[in-house]
Design a protein around this nucleic acid. Sequence first.
DNA 1: CGGTGTGAAAGTTTTCACAGCG
DNA 2: CGCTGTGAAAACTTTCACACCG
Lengths: 242, 242
Amino acid sequence: MVPDEPHSRAAEPPSDASVPKVVVSRISLYLRELQRLQAAGQTTISSGQLGTLLGFSDAQVRKDLGFFGQFGYPGVGYRVDELIHAMRDILGTNQPWPVVMIGAGNLGQALLGYRGFGRQNFAIQAAFDADPRKVGQVIQGIRIQPLSELAATIREKQIRLGMIVVPANRAQEAANDLITAGIEGIVNFAPVTISLPDGIQQVSVDLAIELEQLSFAVVSRLQRPLAEEPTAAPTSPPTGDG
Amino acid sequence: MVPDEPHSRAAEPPSDASVPKVVVSRISLYLRELQRLQAAGQTTISSGQLGTLLGFSDAQVRKDLGFFGQFGYPGVGYRVDELIHAMRDILGTNQPWPVVMIGAGNLGQALLGYRGFGRQNFAIQAAFDADPRKVGQVIQGIRIQPLSELAATIREKQIRLGMIVVPANRAQEAANDLITAGIEGIVNFAPVTISLPDGIQQVSVDLAIELEQLSFAVVSRLQRPLAEEPTAAPTSPPTGDG
DNA sequence: CGGTGTGAAAGTTTTCACAGCG
DNA sequence: CGCTGTGAAAACTTTCACACCG
């Protein structure tokens, strides 16, 4: 327990050692669930309830939160709205994040229209494509711009995050363009490894790999003797509003 | 070392304990890189080279492969084509996987046209939507069907994997439909936790969460003192053909 | 040599268990 | 009471280091 700061409850910066990635990914899951509970009118929740909804132990929920501060009330649990605010502070999403996209193909166009970003304070503010036939088109209210305008737009709109949605053989080039323009973090949807300078953050999403992980899970379960597991029925799932 | 099987080199089933998920996800990355190297004409690779291309240690590459069998030649490394074949055996992608999709909105339509699936032997063979205005439309060569036809189609086409690409409030319902129809694994793109019976595999992709992980990484780096890191230039990345 | 495969050591994450609090 | 926050123990993952191989 920290002896100074006798009253503060807010999120502290990750005071000394860095927080494991897997903890941060669970924070996002907690937040998503809490937002759902908030919309359903629930005002407090215990670590045990929250964990059960997501398949984690109560101790894991508490340990994860413990990396960032003290948010709970002994005997009561956590106040949902407070915890949401704290987690958004942790993740940085109490502030808006304008995002730039490179690649306006099939997938890029779908991302331009994806409703899930706005709620977490992300907004694609500009989109670029190397194909002159795409440039000038307006998709989901965003005009596709030529790459020559990338750096100026990023500067003017103060954009810090980029998404790469180009074919694999163009991805490194797109990354280089983003870095040159001063971007600080990249989500890469191209199915290829890209190299970035130190200090630039990246997250990768490879859709085919997600399916591979699933096919592995399916075939490896069949090869295993498959013990216990009494074959539950898919009728009513836990709707989780305690 | 296994004393029997004096000659076999092929992938063994995960003989006793289960393989950590993180190992399987790296296997997918190794495979992706190996396929790129194969296309570039490289025929052998060492654990050190492969690791360097992906940012892992040589020991980690060898340990990961060690979960599944022995694939290397001391003093030489691994034969690229052999290792690709072995990894596809491990992941299950030497066989074709027909896939069913529920939800033909923005994102679903983009996934119907995504070229990256075919190479790993996945093919979306049928797509469904609850909206009668979508039903009957042909998108990327696939006719959108009504949900009433789901079970029959899955049976006829022997489909084992499903993708959920519906809004959050429909996702559990879609999952239940898939389970009832006999699907064995689900990729869930809806931003909500879904409950499945034991034995049904799932993988989740939440696009907003990916961006959250990125914003966390960006803001937490700024709060940290940011030691060392001599600021490399984004000029020529390692193209990796040793 | 150059490189694999693998026990043993080191490091990391999860679970346990309980003092303390409203 | 019921639940948090947190050290300590257990479980797991990564790195080390080296025998062995062609």
